[in-house]
Every structure is written in structure tokens, then in C-alpha cells.
Write a protein that binds this DNA or RNA. Structure first.
Length: 496
RNA sequence: GGUCUUGUGGCCGAGUGGCUAGGCAGAGCUCUGCAAAAGCUUCCACACCAGUUCGAAUCUGGUCGAGACCUCCA
């Protein structure tokens, strides 16, 4: 039996995954900032961690999955003017900050559900943890890692660096960072340019502000994750995840805050998912080239040719390793659509097998099947190698189709091998990858209607009235329904 | 400039030093009234140069190219 290994970006090595308190696993993932719509790049990150969460659960771990909602204002302006995101957006739309938060939180949840992501077990908000954040700041001040200036509190990176190395995660060093820092306005309060805000004093016009020992203000932008991961998972926990773009400075600062306050760096394993490009270009809010998740589904976007099912997009993501950059484009979507259909058809077929003509002994083909099935776990255990796992599932699909088509006889496999194949296809496609099964079409009114059409076509064919039979086939094809004449003379159909 | 990643066949995309990844597309065949679907077979590869090695897509060095982060971002 293979054991799970994960690529830990903290030391750039693939390591055996050993939870602190098995069978429990603590997983923290940096969630979205709810001041605008989630875009498809966010979906990649969160579906990647959804797959990881699902796989950990599949292995039998009891996972506490914490993913935060960033709903408190952050410094957003590149000139460091202390603009509160929530506030500025709110003024634009003439809404209360919490209305914005509510709107986009609901939207985010809808998108995640659409893409079949399992909700986290705890989804804490930054605004709900102001007290805890203030407490951690006090702790950091008391330990000499933070200082107050004019009602704001900054993390003292140099002081911290004397006790703990700063920059471990992103491979940076403090002197170079200071030397290479750009001149930004509003830096004069800091002792060093790389110091970052733990608490920012708020001017009266800031709507989102809270009372603190340093006056009215709001928390800095790295603090919430340190605070909430510690609160719900402990000073030390198993896995911390997030997008690559958060590695520096966000995660670096998180580690510094955690170590500064608790002497422990929080997570033992850091997992970073890579970015999503569209037509070769990075997708980001600031580029204005982000495509909304719903636009992929509806196809209502100038860069798309048509709509694609959420599972197609998910499948496209899974064909690439989570740590690699992924380019999404029309050709890729079309390929993924076909590939997913092939797998899902095979799943449906294998579940429907009802033969009793099995070999009592294990056959060589049966052994091949067992190897392919076992390979799925081995591949997933190797840092969640979904691409390789999918390759195995495709090979199983070929065997399944051959059984269906009669190229392989049922007595060439054992009952055990067939059952294993049924389980494996379902386990990985449905449970671990979270792909949606093909709509059940064989029962209900639609199935009845289809049966009528199929019968009429068969009668026409019997009378060699091919004009009628082809018309039925072609018109259904045009309507997105494909008829399939099976080897045994029966007719099935599927949606294109 | 600093840190890091990366360069695989027509396209996408895995690859632990020796054993065909896989998908999509292409070609041929089987099945079919004709198709589709399905199956079988098949073509196409490891940026370049040097080195280590019995053997390198995989390790080392160099060249060239691409990208990310260093500033809000998943």
C-alpha cells in the first residue's frame, strides 16, 4: 500500500504526509475576498483544494477544513493611502459595506456549489474575529515583534528576523528585500519598508472600523489567517493551502505572525496551487480579462464558443497537476468535454454490467485491472497526481467498452476484478474528483419519449425506410441527443 | 536587479536514469443500409550544446526561450 506524499512548498520537497493527530487532519485554505465576483481562476484554486479535501476524506481522515472569508477592509491602493476596499466599493454602488460582503459571499457560495465543491467545515470571517486579532497584536507587541505609531501597529520584521528567519517560505532575505523595496508613499511610519501593518488607524470616514487599544481602526491584511487558523486548528496544524500568488508576502507574513505570537509557524505542510491563464494570458482582476464562472456555463462571453458544464471545467483542471500553470482555451475545453464524456459513459456502462459469466480464477486481464485500480491510489498518493489517475481511468474505460462491445468476454475477468473496476471508477470520478454523473435518462418521461422515437426509427429501418430513420437520428443529433446503435441491436442515447 | 518555476509529438498534458503515460486531432481496419458510438492497429517527442553514466526526456554545467512573484490578486 502506498502512502500519501505531498510537495511541501516550505522546503520544496515531497514529503510523507503524517498528520499530527491522526485520524484528524487540520486543513486551512485562504479563501476569497468578497468585494467582487469570484472569477474562474479562484474556482481553480478552490476546486483543487476541494479535490485534496475529498481525497483526504476518502483516505479515511477526519478533516477539519477551514476556509476563511475576507470581509474586512484591506489596504488596496498601490500608493498605500489606506483606502478601505469595502468602503470604496460600497460608495461606488451606494451600498453598505456589509451589503457588499453579503452579496459576494452568497455569489461565491453559489459558484462553489455549481462546481460541486464540498463546503468547508468552518468558514470564519475576518469581521467576526476582530477581538482575537487584537489579542494577537497585543501578544506580538509584548514580545517585541510589533510597535505602535499614531494609532497603527506594524510588524517589526527586522526584530523578528533576529529570532526567527524571515523569508523561509518564499526564499527571500531581509536585507535584499529592504534594498529592493520601491519607494512608496505612506511608509514614513514604518521603521523599515518591509514592515507590514497589523492594525491601521482609521480616519472618521472609514465605515468599517473597530475600537482597539490603539484607537479606532481595522486589522491588517495578513492577520486574520494567522488568528483563525490558530483558533480553529491550533498553534500547529497539518496543512495550509492557497494560491501561489499568496506565497509572498501574505503567507510569509502569516508565518512570521504565528511564530512571533506562538513560537510555532502554524502549518507543517504548505501547499500552493498554480495560476490559471486564459488564451496564454494571466487572468486577474487588475487585467480585466477575468471570465466569470457563470459565463463558462452559459457560454455568454465573446471569447467562448459555447457553454460548458461545470464538470467539464473541473475535469479540465484535473487533467493538469494542481501545482502547474494551466492555460484554459476553447480547444482545451472541447477536448475535456469529449474526454469527460468518454469516462462518464464508461462509468454508466460499468455500473450496468449484470453478467454472471465470470471466471472463477483470477485472469491475467483481471490482474491488469487490479493494477490499474491500485494505480489510481498510488498516483493520488503521489502529491495528488490527478492527471496520472485520469490516465488509468481512461485505460479502464477501454476495457469496460470492450466488455460491452464483446471484444472482451466476461469470462475473461473475475467477479472481483469487475467489482473493483466498478468501485474505482465511481470512487475517483464521483467521490474524489467531484465530477457530476451523466443525467439519468433511462427513466422518467424523457426516457419514454426517447423510446417512442427509437421504436419509430426501428420500424422505419425494418421497412428500409432510411429517409425516415435517418431524419430521426439527424434531427435528434441537431438537438444535442446522440443515438447509439449497440452491437446487440439495442439503441441507447446520450446528450452531446 | 532579486527569488523561483519552466521548455515533451499537430494541440493539451503525465513522467521515479533503462520498460508504449493518457486525452484530443490524423491515418487504416472491424462493426453498420450509410453514419455515429465503440473496439483494434498506426503516425508524430522529449529547446540547443557539452558532460556524468554501460545507458538520460529524466542527473550536472552552459546557451537560448517562456512564465510567475517581488504591488491588490486564488
Amino acid at each position: 500500500m502506498s502512502e500519501l506524499h505531498v510537495y511541501n512548498t516550505l522546503n520544496r520537497k515531497k514529503e510523507k504526509f503524517e498528520p499530527l493527530h491522526p485520524p484528524h487532519v487540520g486543513l486551512y485554505v485562504c479563501g476569497p475576498t468578497v468585494y467582487s465576483d469570484a472569477h474562474i481562476g479562484n474556482v481553480r484554486t478552490f476546486t483543487s483544494f476541494d479535490m485534496i479535501y475529498r481525497y483526504l476524506s476518502f483516505l479515511g481522515y477526519k478533516v477539519r477544513y477551514v476556509r476563511n472569508i475576507t470581509d474586512a477592509g484591506h489596504l488596496t491602493n498601490e500608493r498605500g493611502e489606506g483606502v478601505n476596499r469595502m468602503e470604496s466599493q460600497a460608495k461606488l454602488e451606494s451600498l453598505e459595506p456589509m451589503e457588499i460582503v453579503q452579496k459576494y459571499t452568497v455569489g461565491f457560495h453559489q459558484v462553489m456549489e455549481l462546481f460541486n465543491a464540498v463546503p468547508p467545515t468552518i468558514e470564519p470571517t475576518a469581521t467576526g474575529h476582530i477581538l482575537e486579532q487584537i489579542q494577537m497584536i497585543e501578544e506580538l507587541i509584548q514580545k517585541g515583534f510589533a510597535y505602535e505609531v499614531n494609532g497603527s501597529v506594524y510588524f517589526d520584521v527586522k526584530a523578528y528576523n533576529e529570532k526567527f528567519p524571515y523569508g523561509e517560505l518564499s526564499g527571500r532575505n531581509v536585507d535584499e528585500l529592504i534594498a529592493g523595496y520601491r519607494d512608496l508613499d505612506g511608509q514614513e511610519e514604518k521603521r523599515n519598508s518591509i514592515d507590514f501593518a497589523l492594525w491601521k488607524a482609521a480616519s472618521p470616514e472609514h465605515i468599517m472600523q473597530w475600537k482597539s487599544p490603539w484607537g479606532q481602526g481595522f486589522p491588517g491584511w495578513h492577520l486574520e489567517c494567522s488568528v483563525m487558523s490558530t483558533k480553529y486548528l491550533g498553534e500547529q496544524f497539518d496543512i495550509h493551502g492557497g494560491g501561489m500568488d499568496l506565497k509572498f508576502p501574505h503567507h510569509e507574513c502569516e508565518i512570521a505572525q504565528n511564530k512571533g505570537a506562538c513560537n510555532q509557524g502554524g502549518a507543517r505542510y504548505w501547499l500552493h496551487t498554480n495560476m490559471l491563464n486564459f488564451n496564454g494570458q494571466k487572468m486577474s482582476k487588475s487585467f480585466g480579462n477575468s471570465i466569470l464562472p457563470m459565463e463558462f456555463i452559459t457560454g455568454n462571453h465573446p471569447l467562448l464558443d459555447k457553454g460548458y458544464a461545470p464538470s467539464v471545467v473541473r475535469f479540465l483542471f484535473l487533467q493538469t497537476h494542481y501545482s502547474s500553470e494551466l492555460d484554459i482555451n476553447i480547444k482545451g475545453l472541447q477536448d475535456a468535454e469529449k474526454g469527460l464524456k468518454r469516462l462518464m459513459d464508461a462509468l454508466q456502462v460499468v455500473q450496468g454490467f449484470a453478467s454472471t459469466d465470470f471466471n472463477k480464477e483470477e485472469t491475467s486481464l483481471g490482474k491488469d485491472i487490479q493494477v490499474l485500480c491500485a494505480g489510481c491510489k498510488e498516483n493520488m498518493d503521489d502529491d495528488f497526481n490527478t492527471a496520472k489517475t485520469i490516465a488509468n481511468l481512461f485505460e479502464l474505460s477501454t476495457i469496460i467498452n470492450s466488455l460491452k462491445g464483446g471484444q472482451i468476454k466476461f469470462h475473461e475477468v473475475s467477479k472481483e476484478a469487475l467489482q473493483r473496476m466498478q468501485e474505482t471508477m465511481n470512487d475517483y470520478l464521483i467521490k474524489v474528483f467531484g465530477l457530476k454523473p451523466i443525467e439519468e435518462t433511462t427513466s422518467g418521461k424523457l426516457g419514454d419519449i426517447m423510446q417512442v422515437l427509437i421504436d419509430i426509427r426501428s420500424e422505419a429501418k425494418g421497412k428500409k425506410d432510411f429517409a425516415t430513420s435517418d431524419a430521426i437520428r439527424n434531427k435528434l443529433q441537431a438537438a444535442g441527443i446522440q443515438l447509439k446503435d449497440e452491437k446487440d441491436g439495442s439503441v441507447s442515447f446520450s446528450f452531446l
